[in-house]
Amino acid sequence: MTYFYLAAAIMFEVVATTALKQTDGFTKLWPSLITIGGYALAFYFLSLPLRVLPVGIIYAVWSGVGIVFITAIGWVWFRQTLDLAAIVGILLIVAGVLVLNLFSKTLAH
Rank of each mutant, 00 (worst) to 15 (best):
F43N: 03
I73H: 06
A60H: 05
L98K: 07
F78A: 00
A85Y: 04
W77K: 05
R51N: 15
L6E: 09
I93A: 09
V15K: 14
T81H: 06
G66S: 10
I57Y: 02
D24T: 01
D24Q: 13
V14R: 08
A60S: 07
Y39T: 01
L53S: 12
T23M: 05
W30T: 13
G38L: 06
V52C: 09
T106S: 15
G96V: 14
T27Q: 12
I36Q: 02
L20K: 04
V97A: 11
T35W: 00
P31A: 13
M1H: 12
F45L: 14
I87E: 02
A60N: 03
A72D: 06
T71R: 08
D24S: 11
G37E: 03
A86G: 07
L48D: 10
V52Q: 14
A7R: 06
Y3I: 11
N101V: 03
G56L: 01
I10A: 00
G56K: 04
T2I: 15
Y3N: 04
I87V: 15
W77T: 02
I73W: 04
T71L: 06
A108Q: 14
K28S: 11
F43C: 09
L107C: 05
W77Q: 01
A86H: 09
S63F: 00
L20Q: 06
F26G: 00
G38C: 06
D83M: 03
A86N: 13
L92M: 15
S63H: 00
F69W: 12
G96Q: 10
G74C: 01
I90S: 04
T23A: 05
L91N: 12
I34N: 02
G56W: 08
T18E: 06
G64F: 06
I10L: 02
K21L: 01
A19D: 05
S104M: 12
T17I: 08
I93K: 09
Y3L: 14
V65E: 08
D83Q: 08
V76M: 10
A108R: 15
F12L: 12
F26W: 02
I73C: 03
A8C: 12
T2C: 05
V99E: 09
